[in-house]
Design a protein around this nucleic acid. Structure first.
Lengths: 211, 211
DNA sequence: ATTTGATTCCATCATTTGATGGACATCATC
DNA sequence: GATGATGTCCATCAAATGATGGAATCAAAT
């Protein structure tokens, strides 16, 4: 039973998929309330009716975008886990930072969407919160911060969140941060990776935890 | 020449100040496009006309909110600098984390507004970006990452940003993160402080920087 | 008491926005 | 070629939204 979303992904040039892509970009740029159905339709070059025909209400389309995003993140985390399986924690962290940075810098929509969906008080999508919680639990286990997915102490989740947010912020904030750093795109990506490793590696890899 | 904003702050019960406070809360909750002038007026218990009479266009009111926020942050940073003057870096960081966390957790509007204003593509307020840049430069100098405010290398700004964003994220994301950690408000604040220190202190206080 | 200025609300407008009904087109199947 | 299903657009609606004009209210000064 392929969902409408899966079908859309199977045919990336289908109208339904094109609408989803445009919606994702615009919602990422301006947030839910900052985007009108007419903006999305115009981005695709179609009439509003066509948009409603494929996706129903604006709210439904937005939720489809977030579901799509959640799937994308899950896929990426699985990919990372495959890359670093069995490696020591320091390597795992380095690779995870590199891969997630590369991905989010090439898909800044994703980073923006994540911020909007997490921090806006809109917050209708309780199902996606469960996915996010699972993602965090998986990372916590992978980092050796929790014995298993079902028993993740608050401290472990908090540490994973700190790492996660750091990466997402630098990706989503490029428009503001890069002019401040006064570097080009490539240098920004390099500085961000270096900074994240500078901040995160010592905390998680030192031999004797303090206090 | 006291600005309208300063006058409003001098009389916190004035209509103008009450409108500003309500606007700040609502813009923080729902973002610029998610708030209508009617919502703000209703929150204050007045007519829309009264709102426009005092603050003009919606856009002007929003910019006043952001200016107010910028002043608040500057004040807080000065306060912190006074508290830790002359202390070693480790103490500076700990105090800064404690004070900023306490402040932002008691003023979550501020944290939300900061996120919205930094990451939304709206981004009209170029003057406030300059203030933010100055704040970062001051912190960089205070942390010994730059020789003076005029010469802050990209790496230094990036590190300050990493610290800054971490604090703001935990404050703004309480609604989503606290249920995930499954703790009450007080415990959340404690875990966040502990986590931030766990992450940040080793990076900036170790004796022999790696790589 | 009158004047003056500041403040607030009511009524209203023009535009925007989400959404829908129905006409037209395309195309596979019979 | 007729038929039905699918997809697209045009015209339009009702509600929401930003904004304003003008009347009413109030307080202080004259």
């Amino acid at each position: 039973m392929p969902t409408a979303l899966e079908k859309a992904r199977q045919a990336p040039d289908s109208m339904k998929a094109r609408i989803l892509t445009a919606a994702r970009k615009l919602f990422g740029d301006y947030g839910y309330h900052g985007v009108t159905t007419r903006m999305i339709a115009q981005e695709v070059g179609i009439d509003i009716s066509t948009l409603h025909y494929h996706w129903g209400e604006k709210q439904d389309l937005y939720e489809a975008v977030l579901t799509d995003l959640s799937d994308e993140i899950r896929t990426k985390l699985v990919e990372i886990e495959g890359l670093v399986h069995g490696k020591p924690l320091e390597v795992r962290l380095e690779v995870a930072i590199d891969v997630m940075c590369d991905h989010l810098f090439n898909n800044s929509d994703s980073a923006h969407l994540m911020l909007f969906s997490h921090f806006a008080k809109n917050r209708i999508t309780t199902e996606l919160d469960a996915h996010f919680t699972r993602h965090l639990a998986n990372i916590a286990v992978a980092m050796g911060l929790a014995p298993d997915k079902a028993h993740v102490p608050p401290q472990a989740n908090a540490r994973v969140l700190a790492v996660w947010n750091s990466v997402v912020n630098f990706a989503a904030g490029e428009d503001l941060f890069r002019p401040i750093l006064n570097v080009d795109r490539q240098a920004y990506l390099a500085v961000v990776k270096e900074t994240l490793k500078f901040i995160l590696l010592p905390a998680f890899t030192r031999k004797a935890p303090q206090a």
